[in-house]
Nucleic acid binder design. Structure first.
Lengths: 209, 209
DNA sequence: TGTGTGAATTGAACGGCGGCCCATGGAGAC
DNA sequence: GTCTCCATGGGCCGCCGTTCAATTCACACA
C-alpha cells in the first residue's frame, strides 16, 4: 500500500503518542508494543518507525507530554495567586491530584530507563528544571531575596517529598494509607517542613506568629 | 536427567532468588526471564517451576528479601541507640544508603505490579508494616505517649518523604541533584519536618529551646 | 553389593509475542 | 499518462513463559 495522506505527519505523531499513553495507563510500560500501538491507530507497525527512531523514542516523548501536562496544571495554579503560604500547599495538592489521575502513566517516568544507561536528552532535563522552577517560584516569597540556595533546596525537598507520598500511595506501599489520606499527608509534610524552615530563618518571630 | 542432590531444595530456592536479584540489579525487571535465571544457576528452566509457581512468584520473593534486608539494617541502626532526634536522622540515612546501593533492585518494588491487579499477599503487607513500625519506634520519643495518630502520621510522612528523595535522585530526576547531595536533602527534610512538628506540639517551648 | 522405586530434573516443544526492516505499489506531482 | 517517492505492512528472526513425558539418579532395603 502507498501513502494515505489521511493524517499529516504531525497528526500521526500525536495519534501514536495518544495511543501509547493510553496503553501505558491501562497496562503499564510492559504492555506497550509497537504492534499494539499500530492496532489501535489502524496503521501498521512500520509507520511508527517512520515517525520515531524506536520504541524508546516513543516512550521518551510520552514522558515529555506528561511533564508538559503537569507543567500546565502548575502554571494554572500559580496564575490563580492567593496567599503565599497556601500557594505552596495548592501546588502540592495539584501535583498529588495529577499523579493520582493516571498513576501508571506517571509511574512511567520512574520505570523507564534509557537503554544502555544513556542519560536523558537535554530537552527532557529542561522540562524537569522548568517544573522545579515552578516550585521555586511558589516558595520564593517565604525566603529572603538573597537566599537562593535555601530556596532551591526547599523546592527540591518539597518536590521530592510530595513525590514520595504520591509514589507510595499509588503503589499501595504505604501501609494502610488510602489515596484520600495521601492528601492530608501532603498537607502535613508541606506545613511542618515550611514551619520548621521558618524557625531556622527567624526562630522567635516564627514561634510567636 | 534425574536428581542431582547437589543442592537442597532450600539452597536451590536461594540460588534462584540470588540469580534473579542479580539479573534485576544489572538489567532491570525487563531483563529477567526464567531462561536467564536457569542459565546462571546451571539448571534448566523447568527447575524454577518446581520451586516457584511462576515468574511473578519469583519476583515477589525477591521483593520480600529486599524488604527483609532493609529491615535488618534499620534494626541494627535502632540497636545502636544514641540521641533520640539523631536516631530518626540515622534511620533516614540508612534507608537512603540502602536504596542507593542497589537502585534497580529497590526500584523493583515500584515497577512490579501483581498480575491482574491482585493485591500483594499478607506476608508482603506485614513486611511493609514492620518497616513502618521501625520508623514509628524511632519517632516515638519525640511525641507524647498518647499521641498515637500523630506518631503514625509522622512516620508515614517521613518514610514517604525520604523515599521521594531517594527515588528521584536514583532516577536522576531531581534536577542537578547528585547522590551525595541527596543525603543533605534528607537531613534537611527530616530536620525541618520534625522542627515544624515540634512547634505544633508546644509552640513556645520549641521556639525557646 | 544388587536392585527396585519414586522423586527430581530435564529440555524439547507449544503457542505467542516482540522489535524492526525493506521490497512493494499506490498517491501525488507535473 | 507517466514518473517518482515514500508510507506501508507482511515477514524475518528471536525471545518469552510454561508444560510434561522421558530420563536419571539417590536411596532404602535385601
Amino acid at each position: 500500500m502507498g501513502r494515505r495522506s489521511i493524517h499529516t505527519p504531525e497528526q500521526l505523531r500525536q495519534l501514536i503518542l495518544d495511543a501509547a499513553a493510553a496503553i501505558i495507563e491501562a497496562h503499564g510500560l510492559a504492555g506497550l508494543s509497537a504492534r499494539e500501538i499500530a492496532r489501535r491507530i489502524g496503521y501498521s507497525p512500520g509507520t511508527i518507525y517512520n515517525m520515531f527512531e524506536n520504541l524508546d523514542d516513543v516512550v521518551l516523548n510520552v514522558e515529555g507530554r506528561v511533564l508538559d501536562q503537569l507543567d500546565e496544571r502548575l502554571v494554572a495554579e500559580l496564575a490563580k495567586g492567593g496567599d503565599q503560604k497556601a500557594l505552596v500547599q495548592q501546588l502540592a495538592q495539584t501535583y498529588l491530584a495529577f499523579t493520582h489521575e493516571r498513576p501508571k502513566l506517571w509511574n512511567l517516568l520512574f520505570e523507564h530507563y534509557m537503554p544502555g544507561g544513556t542519560d536523558t536528552p537535554p530537552w527532557y532535563q529542561e522540562k524537569l528544571e522548568r517544573l522545579m522552577g515552578r516550585v521555586e517560584t511558589a516558595v520564593a516569597p517565604l525566603y529572603p531575596p538573597d537566599a537562593v540556595l535555601e530556596r532551591q533546596r526547599a523546592a527540591r525537598v518539597l518536590w521530592a517529598g510530595v513525590h514520595g507520598i504520591t509514589s507510595l500511595s499509588t503503589a499501595n506501599k504505604l501501609s494502610n494509607v488510602t489515596s484520600e489520606a495521601a492528601a492530608s499527608l501532603v498537607t502535613d509534610l508541606v506545613g511542618n517542613y515550611l514551619a520548621g524552615a521558618a524557625i531556622k530563618a527567624a526562630p522567635v518571630r516564627a514561634a510567636a506568629s
